[in-house]
Each structure stands twice: as structure tokens, then as C-alpha cells.
Design a protein around this nucleic acid. Structure first.
Lengths: 128, 128, 128, 128
DNA sequence: GTGGTCTAGACCACA
DNA sequence: GTGGTCTAGACCACA
């Protein structure tokens, strides 16, 4: 239930911001919905409030939240977040394709293998 | 000539190990060929010997090198490293596709966009 | 109808005082006209009375209101407020021009670009 | 000599980042020049290292610095920072012009008064 | 020595 | 109660 994995080398604040970013992108958290308060979330996740603060600041900087002093943090309405997500993913795919090309591996080969594997993974329900 | 980019946020030891990994996978460094000594490479790259040590340790851990006490480090024979590289890349591609699926983005859409972007990047010579 | 924008990072009390300042400067609220009572305005705007209190205190401090104990808050007579507003704006413009000069940016360049941009913004209706 | 004014309501970290941003934009700090270390600057300015950390993080986010773990923070080369500065200033000028328009003050009037006042200020050497 | 993360705890502005 | 800033101090990765 908690988004924090202490084994994970990624900073805690980043794990938290990543987690909420996903909830917002998936529409589980709706625009203008209030986020848990910094302090309450700190208690719930067993971290220091500063860490939550930093996670929220990150989300605000990235346009997912807005903060109102004395009232709390709220989910920002943002229609084109999904488009941005797609672009991000495509960019990351291309990075990998480029890396393959450096080893003389054809883009098509990687893509077709990936498509194949993705199809198999999907039917398996890929829980990982 | 030097594989180190100080502007790059990745640790220097990682940039170095990555660089030699590539040389080995591409066959530029042949099996059983001797690697430069830790000290000489440190001088050549202008780094701390500790950093080279760590890069070599990383390569050894990943099966690209073997160390002989008192003699030096050598390239490991490795027929199926390229196959392993392909699999690694395909695995990483699938991770991204899976992430997209969680946001309701179709695998095909991502793949076709990536193929398109990769083609464009290629003609640009993508130096990045 | 409400002057409060909860998405705006500026404090609510400031948004309110700013709003009434504008009404007074534009002459929509006349000298000696009575302001809404703290409590009624709090109800109308859905805020805490403390917040209205603070907004009125701010306006009083700036010479836009005067308070009469037991009777309420009233608009102050102010012939030269508009002149003061102009001077304030000119002063703020000069601050920016000066800042530009520190970076070696010519005053004329900034002014002409600003005039240009302002003209464009105006035709757009600049709702922001 | 110290960029920190404790009377100033702006956060300390922001005053510091603003100060160094100016030095970089003015070319006083050259590309790839090393910044003072977090700890040494903290001692020099009499603040907590965390506060310097935050100032540097801000500068990094805005593209003025890059950090290399274990080595330090360095000034980023960036040709178009000055263009960005100009745009920022023009944007701020327009904000003020727009505010004036809300009170029925003509853009031209403000601009000509500002130009005039700026010229006078300049001859005075405006130390403020 | 260098930067980066985190905690505990204080203090402030705002509602 | 809400968020924002700051300090003191610990611990980690990297060079």
C-alpha cells in the first residue's frame, strides 16, 4: 500500500512524487482534488514531513499540483499531461534503440522482438 | 578520445565501465586481450585510480573482465554477450511498453511513434 | 463574481485587498461609501473572517479605507490616488529597466519590445 | 559583500540563487568555472549547508549549473541565457502595462514617463 | 573532500 | 491546521 521501497536506491521523495504522478495521470486523483496534507502523509508513510514537502514541491514544479498556503495542496487540471507522457515514453524507447544501433543491432529487430515479448507478457498478466 | 564527460551526471566510474563494455561487445577489444593497468589508465584519463578500480570491478562483476593477481585485467571470452545485450535491450523496451499500458497507451502506438522518431534521429546523425 | 482564485499562489487576503483597491481606484466605490461588513463579506466569499479582516487592515494601512468603531469600514476620499498609481507603475517599470541595464540590455530595446508585446496582448484580450 | 539580506522577506536560498544567477548572466562567472563548494559557501555566508544545497539545486534546475558527484558544481555554458533574460524582463514590463490598462492608464503614457525617468535615473547613477 | 538525502525539530505566514 | 523555510547533524555515494 505504501509507495516507498527502502531497498530501492531511488530517493524516497522521488518514489513518492512518482507514485502520485501516476495516480494523477491515471485519473485516480481528479483535478482540484485535495492531496493529503504534508504532515498527515508524513505520518502515514512514516517519513519526515520535509521529505513529503520535497515530493510535493517536485510535483508542483512539474505541473501536477498547486499549493495554497494555509489550505493545502491540490491536483492541477491539465489536459495535455497524457500527451507529455507519451512523448516521454517514445523518447526513452528511442534512447534504447540508439544504444542498440551502436552495437550494430537493427532497430526493426529490436522493435519486432519487443512487440512479440510485450504481447506474451500481456497475456501472462505481467504482475512484475 | 576520453570516454569521460564531466558534464554528464552519471558517475565517472560508470562512464568508464560503460565505455569499455561497448568496446568489448563490439569486438574492438578481443578475448584475453590485456586491459590497460589501473594506474596507467588513471593517468591517461586524469582520474583517481580508485575510480578506475571501481570501473574494472563493475566490468568483472558483469562478466566482461577477469583479473589475474599480479598480472592485470583481461577481457573475458564471451560468445553470447551480443545475444545477451539484445535481450537486455528488448527487456528494457518492454518495461517501457508496460508502463505505457498502465496509462492506457497502446503498445502499437508507442512502437510506431518510436520507429518513426528513430528514423528521423538517425538521419540527423544523433550525436547526443 | 468572486475575486478569489484558489489556483493563484498569492494569499487570499491579498487577492481580496487588491480587488477592492481596484474598485476604489476606478471610482466604482465612492468616497465615504460603506464597505461590506467583515462577516457578511466572509460569508459571501466563503472565507474565514480573519482573512477579510486582514484584507481590510491592509487597505486601511494603504490609505484606501478608514474604520469607524461600531459602524464599519468606509472608503477614504482620495483625489490623487490615480496619480499615485501611475507613479507606482512608472517606478516599477524603471526598476525593471534598471535591472536590464545591469545586464547590458538597452532601455530602448526593452521598451520597444514591451510596447510591441503589449499591443499584441491587447488584441488577444489578455484574459490572464 | 554577502548576498543575504535578512530583512528581505524572500527566502535565503532564493536570494543566493538569484545572486549567482546574476553573476553568471553578467559573465563574471565563466562556463565550466567551479562554484564554491556547498560547505565552504555555507561557512562563508553563515548559513546551513542545506540552504546552499537548495540554492544550487534551483540554479541547476534553471540550467545555470551542473553538479558532478564527488567533484563539485560548475557553471553551465549557455549562449541563450541572455535572450531568456530579455524575454523575462519584457514579460514583466507587460504585466505592469496591463495593470495600468485596468485603471484606464494608457500604455504610451506609462512608457514615455518610464523612459524619461529611466534617463534621469541613469544620469544620477542610481545606486539603489 | 565533494554533492545528495534524510531526520528531528523550530519558527513563520496564512486560513 | 495548512504549507514553507531553516538549522543541526547524520549518513551515503563518489573521487
Amino acid at each position: 500500500m505504501t509507495p516507498i521501497d527502502y531497498q530501492n536506491p531511488r530517493p524516497i521523495y522521488e518514489q513518492i512524487s512518482e507514485y502520485y504522478k501516476t495516480l494523477i495521470l491515471k485519473g485516480i486523483l481528479q483535478p482540484d482534488e485535495q492531496m493529503p496534507s504534508v504532515r498527515s502523509l508524513a505520518v502515514e508513510l512514516g517519513t519526515n514531513p520535509n521529505t513529503i514537502q520535497r515530493a510535493y514541491a517536485e510535483l508542483e514544479r512539474q505541473g501536477f499540483l498547486y499549493a495554497v498556503k494555509g489550505r493545502g495542496n491540490f491536483v492541477k487540471e491539465n489536459d495535455n499531461l497524457m500527451e507529455a507522457k507519451k512523448e516521454e515514453l517514445v523518447g526513452r524507447l528511442c534512447e534504447i534503440l540508439k544504444e542498440g544501433r551502436e552495437f550494430g543491432i537493427k532497430v526493426d529487430e529490436l522493435l519486432s522482438k519487443a512487440a512479440e515479448k510485450a504481447a506474451i507478457d500481456k497475456t501472462k498478466g505481467d504482475k512484475a
